[in-house]
Amino acid sequence: MQIRGHQGDITTERVDAVVNAANSTLMGGGGVDGALHRAAGPDLLEECRRLRAARWHEGLPVGEAAATGAGRLPARWVIHTVGPNRHLGQTDPDLLASCFRRSLEVAHEVGARSVAFPAISAGVYGWDPAVVAGVAVETVRATAPDVPSVEEVRFVLFGPDVLVHFERAIAG
């Protein structure tokens, strides 16, 4: 599996699946979640509503992942995952690792070959970007043998301050 990082806009990535740092409602929000919902258009929100009605009645749990179509995004799927919120006392790195692992497992289930990730929980959820980068890269590497259809993982970071941590983790 090829793993790389770059600065960019995840809503424009030409990959099979983009990972959404979602909130548990799956109804959109701020940050990556809001940007993906705006770019994808109303079809994404409708698919999220159907997903909630069919399986996740109480909302998507922290560390879990689920796929929908991608609406107007250049990707085919959006894989929604809810990162742990340090401000709410969710400080277990295993919860964060679960977001990356479950997202890759779901990507494999839908047949995605390329996946773009944001820095899950490194924004308003209060996790240190260096910690997120280390957990993310380590988890992707450890999960790679279990998801053979996924050939490429891109970490698409909004700014250079976060990118540097991912570049170190990838090189490391």
Results as ranks from 00 to 15, higher is better:
residue 146 D to T: 10
residue 124 V to A: 11
residue 125 Y to M: 02
residue 144 A to K: 06
residue 159 G to M: 00
residue 64 E to K: 03
residue 149 S to Y: 07
residue 54 A to Y: 05
residue 140 V to K: 06
residue 109 E to F: 03
residue 161 D to Y: 14
residue 117 F to R: 03
residue 37 H to G: 03
residue 172 G to H: 10
residue 17 A to C: 07
residue 103 S to R: 03
residue 144 A to Y: 07
residue 58 E to F: 04
residue 149 S to R: 12
residue 144 A to W: 06
residue 172 G to W: 10
residue 152 E to M: 05
residue 50 R to H: 13
residue 33 D to P: 07
residue 90 Q to E: 15
residue 74 P to F: 13
residue 20 N to W: 10
residue 10 I to R: 08
residue 110 V to N: 02
residue 138 E to V: 04
residue 7 Q to E: 13
residue 44 L to R: 12
residue 24 S to H: 13
residue 108 H to I: 04
residue 51 L to R: 08
residue 77 W to G: 00
residue 78 V to I: 08
residue 66 A to R: 04
residue 42 P to H: 15
residue 53 A to Q: 15
residue 106 V to I: 15
residue 94 D to L: 01
residue 37 H to R: 04
residue 50 R to G: 05
residue 167 E to P: 06
residue 109 E to H: 09
residue 119 A to G: 12
residue 116 A to K: 06
residue 131 V to I: 15
residue 34 G to F: 12
residue 73 L to I: 02
residue 10 I to P: 06
residue 15 V to Y: 00
residue 23 N to H: 06
residue 70 A to Q: 07
residue 130 A to H: 07
residue 114 S to F: 04
residue 121 S to R: 11
residue 3 I to W: 11
residue 57 H to I: 07
residue 75 A to V: 09
residue 55 R to W: 03
residue 28 G to I: 06
residue 87 H to T: 05
residue 146 D to Q: 14
residue 11 T to Q: 01
residue 12 T to P: 00
residue 120 I to L: 02
residue 20 N to L: 10
residue 49 R to K: 15
residue 167 E to H: 13
residue 152 E to T: 14
residue 46 E to D: 15
residue 46 E to T: 15
residue 119 A to W: 13
residue 55 R to N: 00
residue 53 A to F: 09
residue 82 V to L: 03
residue 154 R to G: 02
residue 17 A to M: 07
residue 160 P to S: 08
residue 168 R to F: 01
residue 111 G to T: 08
residue 102 R to A: 14
residue 162 V to P: 02
residue 161 D to T: 15
residue 120 I to D: 02
residue 54 A to N: 08
residue 135 V to R: 03
residue 85 N to M: 07
residue 118 P to S: 04
residue 76 R to P: 00
residue 49 R to N: 11
residue 53 A to G: 04
residue 14 R to A: 14
residue 168 R to Q: 10
residue 76 R to Q: 07
residue 99 C to R: 06
residue 9 D to A: 05
residue 61 P to T: 11
residue 165 H to F: 07
residue 136 A to Q: 09
residue 136 A to I: 10
residue 142 A to L: 01
residue 22 A to G: 13
residue 15 V to R: 00
residue 94 D to K: 00
residue 119 A to N: 12
residue 57 H to G: 04
residue 2 Q to I: 08
residue 159 G to N: 10
residue 59 G to C: 14
residue 148 P to G: 02
residue 12 T to D: 07
residue 77 W to R: 05
residue 154 R to D: 02
residue 42 P to G: 14
residue 125 Y to A: 01
residue 39 A to I: 09
residue 55 R to K: 09
residue 6 H to P: 01
residue 112 A to P: 13
residue 170 I to W: 05
residue 21 A to Y: 13
residue 112 A to L: 12
residue 120 I to Y: 01
residue 21 A to F: 11
residue 126 G to K: 03
residue 143 T to E: 12
residue 67 A to S: 06
residue 128 D to T: 13
residue 158 F to P: 03
residue 16 D to F: 13
residue 144 A to M: 07
residue 120 I to G: 01
residue 55 R to L: 04
residue 30 G to H: 14
